[in-house]
Design a protein around this nucleic acid. Structure first.
Lengths: 211, 211
DNA sequence: GCAAAATTCTTTAGTCAATAAAAAATTTGA
DNA sequence: TCAAATTTTTTATTGACTAAAGAATTTTGC
């Protein structure tokens, strides 16, 4: 069941503490919201010192990013499943991508957590943070890129398109609207979808690039 | 010369203090960099208490945003002048837009300042901050939108395009690459330009949407 | 097995941003 | 000029984050 690599006692203890720390952060968030997550409170529940929390995750945003990363696998699976059930055009797929990510945020995490994580990804003080965040971004964009490759293979897009470039462009476009979505507590997924639809229609009238 | 509205003594004192505060922040930044800008140091140079700095600008990021806003007028003027001197395609104009903004950042402000300002715009704790930041964004996007309107008028773009929607889409696209540019201390303007060129070519082969 | 060596955690102390509330100073308006 | 309103400062506190010294424990060589 549990994957048990031959690790030293020290490594196992470390993994255990890291797990206790994010479990503590999660429980604090679920019962009292983001404001109640203090590094001290996390440390106390996890049974370590607050300095250790810093040593492991760098910053509070680092802890939150770990929470985001945890739900990442599930989000990726939902994306892979959900994209095919959308319309035939590229625009439809990108809108589907956006909608799934937004709904996932509403269900599993929270706008407030994303706000702090994305803010930290920009301010980029911690090198470790930036690295992990980029990996998550890469995985998400890759879903879009592979979808484009599939559409090219199916003859839905011309052979001339570059899946990587087109995928990143669309991911960035979609991401800008996602940031807009999480930045305001009151903005709805539907409003974001409408904005993104406007973006895509303006750039790709007909639902495909350079039709 | 100086615009002198009939203001009360209190308002004049307040304006004077606000001006002294951003002057203090600017001098601190120029002589020692962002790390040396502490709210205490600003307050001391400006001759007020640190609480007053907070009362006026909300957060340290709010002070930095004021520095950004100050150079905004000049940036807008440079943009209006510079865009026309670019190529004939929409892609050329957007690339020109990006390049001018990047160069302005290198010349007048600093990546570190932008990082903190953009991070604060996402995390969005201060309502005042978000409002001012959005105004700056709006002004910048409007430059692009007006440029598109001009191109439609000149017959360079079909009448069917929606300048506002297309302008915002392109601004967001460009902005994603700008954030990438400022997020890493080592990334060059040229690299950003190349990424943006890839984005635009993928979405608008031929340099125009839906050709 | 055991003791020295290496690693890792905790304690301690301090900086800085941010906020709240009471106290002090100053402008305003009659 | 004097009382009222406004604004600033003082004071105190929380919380993130960092550095350094000390304490504890695992590792390693014997």
């Amino acid at each position: 069941m549990t994957e048990q690599q031959p690790t030293s006692l020290r490594e196992r203890q470390k993994e255990d503490r890291k797990a206790r720390i994010i479990a503590a952060a999660k429980s604090l968030f679920l019962e009292a919201g983001l404001e109640k997550i203090t590094m001290e409170a996390i440390a106390e529940i996890a049974g370590v010192s607050s300095v250790t929390v810093h040593n492991y995750y760098g910053t509070k945003s680092g802890v939150l990013l770990a929470l985001v990363a945890e739900s990442d696998r599930e989000l990726l699976a939902t994306l892979e499943r959900g994209l095919r059930e959308r319309g035939e055009t590229l625009t439809d797929r990108v809108l589907g991508f956006f909608e799934i990510v937004c709904r996932h945020t509403q269900t599993h995490l929270d706008k407030a957590i994303w706000r702090q994580v994305i803010a930290a990804s920009v301010s980029g003080t911690e090198p470790r943070f930036g690295k992990l965040y980029h990996e998550l971004d890469n995985r998400l964009a890759s879903v879009l890129i592979r979808e484009i490759e599939r559409m090219v293979g199916a003859g839905l897009l011309p052979e001339t398109v570059d899946p990587a470039h087109l995928g990143w462009a669309l991911f960035n476009l979609q991401n800008a609207r996602f940031i807009e979505f999480i930045a305001a507590e009151g903005s709805s997924c539907e409003a974001g979808l409408q904005h993104l639809r406007n973006d895509l229609n303006a750039l790709m009238p007909g639902g495909f690039p350079g039709r």
